[in-house]
Amino acid sequence: MAEEKPSGLDERRAGFARYKKDVKERGKSFFPYAMFHDTVMSLIVVSVIVGLAVIWKWTSYGPHHDGLHKGLIGPEYAPPADPGTVSFVPRPDWYFYFLFYLLRIFKWPETVFLGTIGVPTIALILLLALPFMDLRRERRPSRRPVAMVAAVLTIFSMGILTWKGATAKEALASEVIADVPSWVTQEKLPAAAIPGAKLFATAGCTACHTYLGTGSSNLGAPDLTAIGTRNLGISFQIRHLQCPSCVTPGSPMPKFASLGTARLHELAVFLESSKGKR
């Protein structure tokens, strides 16, 4: 980039005039030449879409008459939405995986904003500004090393983030609940904390929080192994669970008010009893 100055506007105008002239003199007619290629490609696109729909239907619902069956490329639908039970791993569609995974890298509260808004906003601004930053007339990839390296790095990192997001191991409620007895011994939890521990294991908390190494850290959510040592208090815990963003402005943690006060109280007792490994 350095050895060549940005081409002047006059040069760029002359170049475009030359382009128009060349196309007029040596160009081919859009129909049928270019349009033939376009038509073939569009037919391929439609066939791929129909093909995916067929595989989806035939392998999910087809053999079992059950749309919940996973099939080859995914179920027809998950169980109906239920705001009350959270034993479900929140997962976006695949093209947001990179963002989803990005959030494991940043930590609440200092940098989480970078992952959610910062990086995507910067990427968007860079994309919009690209034609104004790269003013050289040169279009051959072999002579645009900076642009090509930047492109390869971008594709590479988006690919890695998407792949990591896709293969991220999520803690399933059935697996997490098996760990509850070991929590009780390791943390010396009182009997009163056990219902809360089971709820914690099944209500989806481990989709974002880790506890004694169980669960996955998402959206920068803190590890809760020793949350009790902070002595936040039962009533704070309940208020936070009912509406995290009311207590901690901007918190991305979902509201759990629908669990009901009795169950929230059990959760709060469990959290306050969690004083770390003892």
Binding site: P80, A81, R91, Y95, L103
Partner: peptide, 28 residues
């Protein structure tokens, strides 16, 4: 894509949107 994902109103749809909306909430 984001808005269409909620429409089936199943668990995947619902919880992905809960988290997605909350993420928007972290903007300054």
């Amino acid at each position: 894509g984001f808005t269409g994902y909620l429409l089936p109103w199943d668990q995947t749809a619902y919880w992905a949107s809960v988290v997605g909306i909350n993420l928007n909430g972290t903007a300054p």
